[in-house]
Amino acid sequence: MNWTNGIRQFHRWVSIVFTLTVIANFVAMAQPEPPTWVAFLPLLPLALLLFTGLYLFALPYTAKWRGARRS
């Protein structure tokens, strides 16, 4: 498995974790006195999704750039 496939797989698993934390956030906010830290729970997976998503977004453009540079 190469580096890109590893990041792609990591991105998929983090998206599942993010979805679960958002669902937990909605459930907690339905309670009369939700703890404050629950609102911040999805932020770490969201930041990881941002960085891995930007990397995956840039891959086709860097491949074109590297291909043009070799020619």
Results as ranks from 00 to 15, higher is better:
53 G>C: 00
52 T>K: 01
36 T>W: 10
7 I>L: 03
55 Y>K: 00
64 K>S: 02
11 H>M: 04
37 W>P: 09
52 T>L: 01
13 W>G: 14
4 T>G: 05
23 I>A: 07
19 T>M: 03
30 A>G: 09
28 A>P: 10
68 A>C: 05
58 A>H: 07
60 P>M: 03
44 L>N: 02
30 A>N: 10
57 F>V: 09
27 V>L: 11
4 T>I: 09
66 R>M: 11
59 L>W: 02
18 F>S: 06
59 L>Q: 05
53 G>P: 00
50 L>A: 03
42 P>R: 05
12 R>G: 09
15 S>F: 03
4 T>W: 06
14 V>R: 02
22 V>M: 03
16 I>D: 08
43 L>Q: 07
37 W>R: 13
53 G>E: 00
32 P>F: 13
5 N>C: 10
9 Q>T: 15
40 F>L: 13
14 V>D: 12
9 Q>F: 11
57 F>P: 01
6 G>I: 11
41 L>R: 06
43 L>V: 04
23 I>V: 14
59 L>M: 03
55 Y>A: 06
49 L>K: 01
71 S>P: 04
15 S>P: 10
22 V>F: 00
37 W>N: 14
5 N>F: 11
44 L>F: 07
67 G>M: 10
14 V>Y: 08
11 H>T: 02
23 I>H: 08
40 F>C: 14
46 L>T: 00
61 Y>F: 06
66 R>T: 05
27 V>A: 13
70 R>H: 09
32 P>I: 14
49 L>N: 04
40 F>W: 15
22 V>N: 04
52 T>M: 04
71 S>F: 10
43 L>N: 06
42 P>L: 02
4 T>H: 15
24 A>R: 07
53 G>A: 00
55 Y>M: 03
16 I>G: 11
36 T>V: 14
45 P>V: 01
28 A>M: 12
44 L>S: 07
58 A>F: 06
5 N>V: 14
64 K>H: 05
5 N>A: 11
16 I>E: 12
14 V>F: 06
68 A>D: 07
50 L>V: 00
59 L>G: 00
66 R>S: 00
57 F>N: 07
45 P>K: 01
